[in-house]
Simulated assay, not measured.
Amino acid sequence: MIRYALKCDTGHEFESWFQSADAFDGLKASGMVACPACGSTAVEKALMAPQIRPSRKRAAADGPVPEERKPLTGPRHPVEEFLRALRRKVEENCDYVGRNFATEARAIHLGEAPERPIYGEAAPEEARELLEEGVPIAPLPFIGPRNTN
């Protein structure tokens, strides 16, 4: 596993773990790496220093870690916390239908499937067709659970 510091084209900085450098390149090329703050897929690696842990003896001798050197455990920006809360709410209250989103949304709209909140993935053309047919949909600022980075 490798951790990268990343930055989107609007200036948001964030970190993410990847299986390998090749995995990052593949996910980025397919548009699967997105900024958690704005959803932009124009993401680049940012300059990052390697994190080297001191030995246990050294760490004990140095005492507690200063606040500015502690690892990131929470969101860097209030928007990140809002997006996390939104994602939790959607995942708790809606059915994930994956790439069958357009088919399911259309079936619910036409009364062919039970009425329920859903979320999933749709190609831009599919989303456009749903909107033209009057199916009420809205894009979410995150990727479904199958494709998270």
Rank of each mutant, 00 (worst) to 15 (best):
127 A>D: 06
15 E>D: 12
73 T>P: 00
114 P>V: 08
25 D>A: 15
18 F>I: 03
31 G>S: 08
12 H>N: 04
64 P>I: 07
83 L>A: 12
109 H>K: 03
79 V>M: 13
94 C>E: 09
50 P>V: 09
49 A>W: 12
73 T>M: 10
28 K>H: 13
119 Y>D: 01
106 R>A: 15
54 P>Q: 10
122 A>E: 04
103 T>D: 13
98 G>D: 07
6 L>C: 04
78 P>T: 06
48 M>N: 09
18 F>S: 03
69 R>K: 13
36 P>T: 03
14 F>S: 01
60 A>Q: 13
36 P>G: 09
9 D>S: 15
117 P>G: 06
32 M>D: 12
127 A>M: 11
30 S>T: 13
92 E>A: 15
57 K>Q: 13
65 V>P: 01
114 P>D: 12
45 K>A: 05
108 I>C: 08
116 R>K: 15
12 H>D: 00
4 Y>L: 14
79 V>L: 14
74 G>L: 11
88 R>I: 07
110 L>I: 03
15 E>I: 04
57 K>G: 07
12 H>L: 01
109 H>P: 00
92 E>T: 10
35 C>K: 00
121 E>P: 00
118 I>F: 09
26 G>D: 12
28 K>G: 01
77 H>S: 04
24 F>G: 00
21 A>Y: 09
7 K>Q: 10
126 E>Y: 06
29 A>R: 14
90 V>A: 05
113 A>D: 08
95 D>I: 11
96 Y>E: 14
39 G>S: 14
126 E>A: 15
60 A>K: 14
114 P>Q: 11
52 I>P: 00
88 R>E: 12
56 R>N: 09
102 A>C: 09
113 A>F: 05
53 R>S: 14
91 E>S: 06
117 P>C: 13
75 P>I: 02
39 G>Y: 06
100 N>H: 15
113 A>R: 13
14 F>H: 01
48 M>T: 05
78 P>N: 08
95 D>W: 08
67 E>D: 09
49 A>Y: 09
24 F>D: 00
85 A>C: 07
105 A>P: 04
59 A>P: 00
9 D>R: 12
57 K>N: 10
127 A>K: 06
74 G>M: 07
3 R>A: 13
42 A>L: 12
23 A>D: 14
105 A>K: 02
22 D>G: 11
86 L>I: 03
66 P>I: 10
118 I>L: 11
101 F>P: 00
61 A>L: 12
2 I>G: 03
55 S>E: 11
115 E>G: 05
106 R>M: 14
70 K>N: 07
29 A>F: 06
14 F>R: 01
14 F>N: 00
97 V>M: 08
121 E>W: 07
15 E>C: 05
85 A>F: 05
88 R>G: 03
10 T>E: 11
43 V>L: 11
10 T>D: 04
104 E>N: 06
43 V>T: 07
23 A>H: 14
121 E>Q: 11
15 E>Q: 09
67 E>G: 01
70 K>L: 15
112 E>Y: 07
109 H>V: 01
115 E>K: 15
18 F>C: 01
5 A>E: 10
11 G>N: 04
117 P>S: 10
64 P>G: 05
64 P>E: 08
12 H>W: 08
110 L>P: 00
123 A>N: 11
56 R>W: 09
41 T>D: 12
9 D>W: 05
62 D>R: 11
